[in-house]
Design a protein around this nucleic acid. Structure first.
Length: 499
DNA sequence: CGGTTAGCCGCTAGCGGCTAACCGGTGCGCTAGT
């Protein structure tokens, strides 16, 4: 049977979406594959179809519990019963049972952390996995070095389970990141399927303001003016909450803040309300977005700048899933980059903390195998955050022998390099903000692409007609008519002045 | 770096104004205690 026959048989589709066929062919051709496909092309089909066409289970590494649950539910709804998510949503007896019956499943979703456990690896070893799929694979590069170190262990785990055929899926990865993904997964040879990161339906706007208050006012103007629904991204939970309250106080009622500090019930509720159209605006941190498949998001505003261009692309990419005209607006005020630099610095342990750490290790003659046991004491003594501690622990516990001075130097060196990488990404983002040329072209260049077809409403450098993104539905417009129009006009004038 | 807040001073009894200190994102799994 031809590939399309299988597509019809298992999914009842007649045609592949862009990139799917290439990815599937590469996999069934038994080649390790890194596939960079545009958002909304149905990446899950790329591992599901080859899964159906071969013996043995598919193991899918996923970054988020909610993402796994969604995928499992979707597949169940499609009639696939042999699917399981192996994560902490399972009670210990459920987990034990799932592990016991693992050979009955065709699709096994798992977090990198759970996959790092020896007991789980041992169980998976015996399964002869047909495909090892890593969803949102840019997380390896973006999170693995500090935030979620288990991402860097995936290669070693791949080895342990017999080097199965591997598929890494992502929507945004530069050449460098793709190389890093292959490197960390210990792939020697692989095939790349790379589609453009360009999203012609999204116009890119940059606006400069001079202070915080002005930014807040401009944000409100935009929310009033633009056709929703929309997402506003912040780098601070407090400012997201505060702006959400500010908008509500000014008559924009269907707004909520979303960030990692909320309890999980609230997070699920807000996400669902946004998807169902009960909310117009979400004031969010970077916690919001992965796995949100909402077709009609019409704008994304960045109140704070993201820490790297890839994050910016991921975040604006949540607009225009339906292909309709949308706009991404980053509002910059001088000094905004300081917050980004601050966050980057605070994530890694500083020199002083490392000095204290080694003072303690030397005085107590600690061997590295014992450091996990000393977590509380060391974290207190050095003032480590959870993440800082994990970086240190991960580094030391992987060392073979002990040479305190040498190890201290190399750890400091590693941390210094890591910080420099983060800083250079922020600088690159800043260069984009200050660039005096087509905003789209600059982003594409980062991904080694050239802008071929410039969309009509390309970017604020090439010129954008903001009227095209205006709210026109009179029924959702409850403001007094006179004020409204003046405000709208003012916002258009303000915008054209700024560019 | 810049926004927020707690605390203090001053002049006259509650409040304005100043300064110093503090804080800032992303998730998994597990465990203790309700």
């Amino acid at each position: 049977m031809e590939l399309k026959g299988y597509l019809k048989k298992y999914f009842n589709f007649d045609e592949f979406r862009p990139g799917q066929q290439e990815a599937v062919e590469s996999i069934i051709g038994n080649q390790h594959t890194i596939a960079m496909l545009p958002t909304g092309t149905g990446k899950s089909l790329c591992y599901q179809l080859p899964g159906y066409m071969s013996e043995g289970p598919v193991l899918i590494v996923s970054p988020l519990l909610s993402l796994m649950q969604d995928q499992v539910e979707q597949m169940m709804a499609m009639g696939e019963k042999r699917v399981v998510a192996l994560n902490s949503f399972l009670t210990p007896p459920q987990k034990a049972k799932a592990l016991e019956n693992l050979h009955h499943y065709k699709f096994i979703f798992i977090s990198p952390e759970m996959l790092g456990m020896e007991s789980v690896i041992d169980r998976i070893k015996g399964l002869s996995v047909s495909l090892f799929a890593v969803d949102e694979a840019h997380c390896i590069s973006q999170w693995g070095y500090d935030f979620r170190p288990d991402y860097l262990k995936l290669g070693e785990i791949r080895r342990k389970i017999g080097e199965p055929l591997t598929l890494a899926l992502t929507a945004t990865a530069t050449n460098e990141v793709r190389r890093d993904i292959a490197d960390k997964l210990l792939l020697e040879k692989w095939n790349e399927i790379v589609f453009s990161v360009d999203r012609p339906a999204i116009s890119l706007a940059l606006e400069k303001v001079s202070h915080f208050q002005e930014k807040q006012q401009r944000t409100m103007q935009l929310v009033r003016f633009l056709k929703g629904p929309g997402i506003i991204y912040f780098s601070s939970k407090k400012v997201a909450e505060q702006t959400s309250a500010y908008l509500r106080e000014h008559g924009i009622s269907k707004v909520m803040a979303y960030h990692g500090g909320l309890d999980s019930e609230s997070r699920i509720l807000i996400q669902q309300q946004f998807i169902n159209g009960q909310l117009d605006v979400v004031c969010a941190t970077s916690a919001f977005g992965m796995g949100i498949n909402k077709e009609n998001v019409r704008y994304v505003i960045h109140f704070h700048m993201p820490m790297q261009i890839e994050s910016y692309l991921q975040e604006i990419g949540r607009a225009a899933r339906d292909g309709g005209d949308s706009v991404a607006i980053l509002i910059y005020s001088p000094g905004d980059e300081q917050l980004a630099f601050q966050l980057a610095e605070a994530e890694l342990p500083d020199e002083f903390q490392i000095e204290r750490l080694f003072t303690f290790l030397i005085e107590n003659n600690v061997v590295y195998q014992d450091i996990t046991r000393l977590e509380e004491e060391l974290a207190m003594f050095c003032g480590f955050t959870d993440i800082q501690w994990r970086i240190v622990e991960n580094y030391l516990s992987n060392l073979e022998s002990v040479d305190y001075n040498q190890d201290k130097r190399s750890l400091l060196h590693l941390l210094d390099n890591r910080l420099k990488v983060k800083q250079s990404k922020i600088k690159q983002m800043l260069e984009w903000i200050h660039s005096q040329e087509c905003k789209r072209a600059v982003i594409l260049r980062t991904f080694n692409e050239k802008l071929e077809d410039r969309p009509e409403n390309c970017c604020s450098y090439c010129g954008i007609e903001m009227e095209d993104f205006k709210e026109t539905d009179a029924s959702s417009d409850e403001r007094p008519i006179g004020v409204d129009w003046k405000q709208d006009l003012a916002s258009i004038l303000l915008l054209s002045e700024r560019i």
